[in-house]
Simulated assay, not measured.
Amino acid sequence: MTARTLPWLVGVAALGLLGAGAAWYGFSQNEVNLAGAGECRASQPVAESLKPLARGELAAVGVSNAPKPPPDIAFLGPAGQTKSLADFKGKTILVNLWATWCVPCRQEMPALDKLQAELGAQDFEVVAINVDTRNPEKPKTWLQENGIRHLAYYADPGGKLLQTLQKSGHVVGLPTTFVVDEAGCEIALLKGPAEWASDEAYTFVRTALGRP
């Protein structure tokens, strides 16, 4: 067990207290996702190209065998407006769920910020969604104090997003990260932290984008 893994497991235990009934819902959600998988068949070649790249710092990333639409979630955008993943269609996004009380979340935020700085463009964005439910100004202050300058601020202070993703099986602890391609199809999922400013991460994202 690594130093990076231990605090994540603590977060898993904490979030597990909120997961009653999630298993049954997960099976139901899987049936819904299977119904939508047909529209994501065109994303399969991209997913296949990513499988051999889930190694090194990204060894724990699960690349989808059958890309499918992600769960329908809502959150707040930088101006406080309601957003959904559908708003990003046409752009590949790396969705990261984080909280100020989550140690490994805080540890990987500088790397996510660097990933956005290096690769962020019209075709790619790191969508880091804060899920703190108390003191909505605290996450913004933390980002400023720690020099996180390139990530737009997304948040779900109501906590509904986290509940939805727990029920769908996406979240067992924080951080959780998943990749949605330009067609709006989920192609990869990571339950836990990673070094997002690594060579492996850059290669993974560039390949997802079809960049050389």
Score class of each variant (00 low, 15 high):
154 Y>L: 02
154 Y>I: 03
154 Y>W: 07
154 Y>E: 00
155 A>E: 10
155 A>S: 11
155 A>P: 11
155 A>T: 05
156 D>R: 05
156 D>T: 08
157 P>T: 03
157 P>S: 03
158 G>C: 04
158 G>I: 04
158 G>T: 13
159 G>Q: 09
159 G>M: 14
159 G>D: 04
159 G>T: 08
159 G>N: 08
160 K>D: 11
160 K>M: 09
160 K>H: 07
160 K>W: 09
160 K>C: 02
161 L>W: 10
161 L>N: 10
162 L>G: 06
162 L>S: 15
162 L>D: 08
162 L>R: 06
163 Q>K: 13
163 Q>F: 13
163 Q>T: 12
164 T>F: 05
164 T>I: 06
164 T>P: 09
165 L>N: 04
165 L>T: 01
165 L>A: 03
165 L>F: 09
166 Q>R: 14
166 Q>D: 08
166 Q>K: 13
167 K>W: 10
168 S>T: 09
168 S>R: 08
168 S>V: 04
169 G>P: 10
169 G>E: 07
170 H>P: 11
170 H>R: 12
170 H>C: 11
170 H>D: 15
171 V>K: 12
171 V>N: 11
171 V>P: 14
171 V>F: 08
172 V>T: 06
172 V>E: 07
173 G>V: 11
173 G>H: 11
174 L>R: 06
174 L>T: 05
175 P>Y: 12
175 P>I: 11
176 T>A: 12
176 T>E: 15
176 T>S: 15
176 T>H: 14
177 T>L: 09
177 T>I: 09
177 T>V: 13
177 T>S: 15
177 T>E: 06
177 T>H: 07
177 T>K: 10
177 T>A: 13
178 F>M: 09
178 F>D: 04
179 V>E: 02
179 V>Y: 05
179 V>M: 12
179 V>Q: 03
179 V>L: 13
180 V>A: 02
181 D>G: 08
181 D>Y: 04
181 D>N: 08
181 D>T: 07
182 E>I: 02
182 E>C: 06
182 E>Q: 15
183 A>N: 07
183 A>K: 08
184 G>I: 01
185 C>S: 01
185 C>F: 01
186 E>Y: 01
186 E>F: 01
186 E>K: 01
186 E>G: 02
186 E>N: 01
187 I>F: 06
187 I>V: 05
187 I>K: 00
187 I>N: 03
187 I>W: 06
188 A>M: 05
188 A>W: 07
189 L>S: 14
189 L>N: 12
189 L>V: 13
189 L>W: 11
190 L>E: 02
191 K>A: 07
191 K>S: 05
191 K>F: 02
